[in-house]
Computed example of a mutant assay.
Amino acid sequence: MKNRVANRGVIYAHMNVVDQYVLSYGIEFHEFYHAFSDLPNLLLLRHQFDDGNFNLHTLLEYVDSESMPKLSEDDVYEYGDFCWVDFEDEEALNRLDGQEIAELLYLSHLKTHLRLPFYRKLNNRFVYLSHDDGWFNKTYYRSFDDFYKTLGVSISSKLNEKGEKTFFGLKKKKEIPSIPIEILYPFIEDMKEGMIISIERAIHTRASVEIPIWIIGDYYDMDEMYEEYEGLYNRPLDGKIVFDRKVKEWKAFVK
């Protein structure tokens, strides 16, 4: 069952507010990059990217703003583990001490932290830890508003990628914008419990697009999460996100 095709139709998100991370399924790196294309540099902790720069102090590779678009287009799903932390400039890497480098390596190896992984020297906003990118992602956010932005971009990206076809079989022009972060605020408590957003079961009409939402609980094993999702057909919705085509606005409905 593990494949990137499934990732395109379903998003699972479980927020851990205390430790400032989100476990997710379905959110892919190219969508993350689209949300934050202004990121200056990424320190690559685990990867198979062939065009990175090498930092002699950490003995790790990094990607600068020039190489970032190429990385975003690479097939990072095939890397297996893909882990990185953002940073402002290379001098920041050269100021890291042995303990901080060890903590970063621990993060990428065990996908958990020894202490909250936001470093003054790096001034990082994120730590991105994935296995089979889009299948299992654990992402630390300095601000959860950045997560809501990521989620809004990912949902609209999947809708537009799927597209709707005209009578002649041609895809209609992309027209669905990213979801504003304030539209997702009503679902914060649901995401703390573990929430499914099903783009593949969205109802498309001339007037709107309605995306169903269910609360399914806390999952670390994404195989188990997906099995639970597949049994949700007859369960009442816990909410929905609706795009009104006429006014071109998103709306949230919570049970």
Results as ranks from 00 to 15, higher is better:
residue 77 Y to A: 12
residue 51 D to R: 15
residue 213 I to G: 06
residue 60 L to G: 05
residue 132 D to G: 06
residue 13 A to D: 04
residue 212 P to H: 03
residue 181 I to P: 01
residue 249 E to G: 08
residue 37 S to H: 14
residue 122 L to G: 07
residue 37 S to L: 00
residue 153 V to E: 10
residue 129 L to C: 14
residue 20 Q to G: 02
residue 222 M to N: 04
residue 224 E to H: 10
residue 5 V to M: 10
residue 138 K to L: 11
residue 180 P to R: 10
residue 211 I to C: 02
residue 87 F to W: 04
residue 235 R to C: 00
residue 153 V to M: 11
residue 146 D to P: 00
residue 98 G to M: 14
residue 2 K to W: 11
residue 6 A to N: 09
residue 221 D to F: 15
residue 196 I to S: 00
residue 121 K to T: 11
residue 93 L to R: 04
residue 138 K to H: 08
residue 184 L to C: 07
residue 218 D to P: 05
residue 191 M to T: 07
residue 46 R to C: 13
residue 253 F to Q: 11
residue 158 K to M: 13
residue 65 S to N: 10
residue 228 E to S: 13
residue 217 G to I: 10
residue 186 P to G: 14
residue 3 N to I: 01
residue 191 M to K: 11
residue 32 F to D: 01
residue 51 D to M: 14
residue 214 W to R: 03
residue 82 F to T: 00
residue 199 I to R: 03
residue 87 F to K: 04
residue 218 D to C: 13
residue 31 E to V: 01
residue 235 R to A: 05
residue 228 E to Q: 15
residue 104 L to A: 01
residue 68 M to H: 08
residue 100 E to W: 01
residue 211 I to G: 06
residue 140 Y to Q: 02
residue 95 R to H: 12
residue 47 H to S: 12
residue 38 D to M: 09
residue 28 E to P: 01
residue 30 H to S: 11
residue 123 N to Y: 05
residue 19 D to I: 01
residue 250 W to L: 05
residue 129 L to V: 01
residue 78 E to Y: 13
